[in-house]
């Protein structure tokens, strides 16, 4: 990590975005008091992570990227055993477990072993487990990784309702649609640094403009765009024009530049992400 600085406000959904190896999970683990930081200050609820581990961890709910449900137990037992780690008294633990299973639509699977759950159910159970101590801050590392669209939408729905209840949520994600739907504020990270911070819609507007016109990458098109003083970027065999006035650009391209085909569409967070982090493949 390289001198990152950020602040999460109570009641907001805050997202860490970035390619593989950007440092998202490392940052999450430092907040969770699991990975040590080499310097600087990191405070959670105003407490230093290196001296108040236990107090901080009591108030966190963590959904890890890699499933670590306990395969030796059933769905219900997973939550009950976990509740012990938080010193939740038995009657209360039973009550919370029942209501969480209900909330996550897992009541029917109560006595099922972990191996027999689908990917989506496992993620939902992990989310239920993260909520067992009614945390002040939810830490979600890739909450919908590897899920089919149905399962993903169900998780989004649950996260939306948690957000509506006023929960503070920090999440990481590769899915930019997920970030624009859920997050109040995001940071885009790369190679251990924070590149930008802000509201997803604002970032799109500031970094790209409202629309993108895509055309073929040919010399006449590029010359034309230069003549119009348009903002554009070349991506391989396509040219992306960032603009607030897509009509003017398209008609100019069609009329005077003899472009055969072009596409105009709304700019998305994905465009911001690729513009900032480049298109090189990350392994």
């Amino acid at each position: 990590m390289d001198q990152i600085s950020f602040e999460v406000r109570e009641g907001e959904v805050f997202g860490f975005l970035g390619p593989n190896g950007a440092g998202k999970t490392t940052t999450m683990k430092m907040i969770q008091c699991v990975s040590p930081k080499s310097g600087g200050t990191l405070e959670v609820f105003g407490m230093d992570v290196s001296t108040h581990e236990r107090d901080i961890k009591k108030m966190l709910g963590v959904l890890p990227q890699e499933t670590n449900l306990d395969p030796d137990f059933t769905v219900y037992e997973n939550l009950m055993v976990y509740s012990r780690y938080y010193d939740i008294p038995l009657p209360k633990a039973e009550e919370i477990t029942a209501s969480l299973l209900d909330f996550m639509q897992l009541t029917e699977k109560r006595n099922t072993s972990i191996e027999q759950l689908s990917g989506g159910m496992k993620r939902r159970l992990l989310l239920a487990r993260a909520l067992i101590n009614t945390p002040r801050l939810l830490m979600l590392d890739e909450p919908t990784v590897g899920l089919d669209p149905q399962a993903r939408h169900l998780i989004w729905e649950k996260l939306k309702s948690l957000q509506a209840q006023g929960n503070t949520i920090v999440l990481t994600t590769h899915y930019l649609e997920e970030a624009s739907r859920l997050c109040d504020r995001i940071v885009i990270m790369d190679k251990g640094k924070i590149l930008v911070e802000g509201n997803p819609q604002d970032l799109v507007r500031d970094q790209i403009g409202s629309e993108i016109v895509e055309a073929e990458n040919t010399q006449p098109v590029v010359d034309c765009l230069k003549g119009m003083k348009a903002t554009y970027e070349v991506w391989d065999n396509r040219v992306h024009v960032y603009t607030d006035k897509p009509k003017e650009i398209t008609s100019a391209l069609l009329d005077s530049c003899k472009v055969r085909s072009l596409t105009a569409r709304s700019a998305t967070l994905e465009d911001v992400f690729l513009k900032l982090t480049g298109r090189t493949l990350r392994e």
């Binding site: 699991v34 581990e53 236990r54 961890k57 890890p64 670590n68 449900l69 976990y82 780690y85 101590n133």
Partner: peptide, 9 residues
């Protein structure tokens, strides 16, 4: 990993 995410060290 699952346990150290809770107050346990």
């Amino acid at each position: 990993d699952a346990i150290i995410a809770t107050p346990l060290s």
